[in-house]
């Protein structure tokens, strides 16, 4: 009985109707940049995860007899200074960049959303204490923290995900806290409280679902940020130890050979990083517009 009554108070139940979802998709599809971003992202995912099936290479063992070959023949993008096929390494490295970026971005969004929603909903000293923690953490440059932590522990995929997420959750936390502050005074929240609903229910059944548009759009930017941070850390030499690779470490290794003209070591990973980050940003922009339209219509 209670459940049914509460559900009736939820505006998101209405928002989730098929017509509105379709309208959101239609608005997103009309945004050419967003659509291009989505296609590029799909292309890159296919390249990294399905590409090795078409172009299988050994990315574990070095082959010094094939070191630093220019593009052509058996190696369409050339080889690295240790003889790895660069096209294959781009796929292999892309898997790490995308996996770590996606996981860190989503983890940061998840934690930041819950943290911000709790702070915003409960308000008072809880909000003050939680937000001062956020402010203090934001005052420390993220890159400094990342470099310090990555220098202390040996980076691995899970470790990278955790250390990137540990600095990236601050932004969604502040954002969702703002949303929660606005949502907590809505009638349906008051109604839920009168009917005996607790804080947990308010946060997870009402605040977070009603801020889902903000959460989703922010998640795309968080993922783009996380991919860049993976590249950034790797560029500074704090990547997962070889033979693992990611686009940032490939770019870093290639820069060493700038003076001798090995362009194929620099452009492919550099372009891949720019493409994936731009794709996520375009998708985020498209989603933001789509959610804006949906809410306006509503």
């Amino acid at each position: 009985m209670t459940t049914t009554a509460l559900d009736a108070t939820q505006p998101e139940a209405a928002l989730a109707t098929p017509s509105l979802a379709r309208r959101t998709l239609t608005v997103f599809a009309r945004n050419k940049l967003a659509l291009t971003g989505a296609l590029v992202l799909l292309g890159l995912l296919a390249f990294c995860f399905l590409g090795p099936l078409i172009h299988p290479t050994d990315q574990i063992h070095t082959d010094l007899t094939q070191a630093s070959l220019a593009p052509g023949g058996a190696h369409p993008l050339g080889t690295t200074d240790l003889g790895y096929d660069l096209l294959g390494r781009l796929m292999y490295g892309g898997q790490t960049s995308l996996e770590v970026g996606l996981a860190a971005g989503l983890l940061a969004t998840l934690f930041g959303t819950v943290y911000g929603a709790v702070a915003g909903y409960f308000g008072g000293w809880v909000d003050a204490a939680m937000m001062r923690v956020t402010d203090a953490a934001l005052a420390i440059p993220a890159l400094f923290l990342l470099v310090v932590v990555a220098a202390i522990v040996t980076p691995s995929k899970p470790v990278l995900i955790l250390i990137i997420a540990s600095v990236a959750w601050l932004s969604p936390a502040r954002l969702i806290r703002g949303e929660a502050l606005a949502l907590r005074s809505r009638d349906y929240i008051h109604a839920m409280r009168l009917m005996g609903g607790g804080g947990g229910r308010a946060v997870f059944r009402h605040i977070v679902p009603n801020a889902i548009g903000t959460v989703i759009v922010n998640a795309t930017f968080q993922i783009a940020d996380a991919i860049l941070y993976v590249a950034y850390l790797s560029f500074l030499g704090l990547s997962i130890p070889p033979p693992a690779a990611d686009w940032g470490s490939m770019l870093s290794a290639g820069i060493t050979y700038t003076q001798v003209g090995y362009w194929w070591l620099i452009f492919p990973p550099g372009i891949a990083i720019v493409l994936v980050v731009a794709a996520f940003n375009f998708i985020g922009d498209g989603l933001r517009d789509a959610f804006d339209v949906r809410l306006t219509k509503n």
Partner: peptide, 23 residues
Amino acid sequence: MGLRSTRIRGPLGRILAAVLLGA
């Protein structure tokens, strides 16, 4: 909604700069 991360410009700019520098 103001969702755009401000931090994105720093790393993106640096990676882009590295690519352009290399180029």
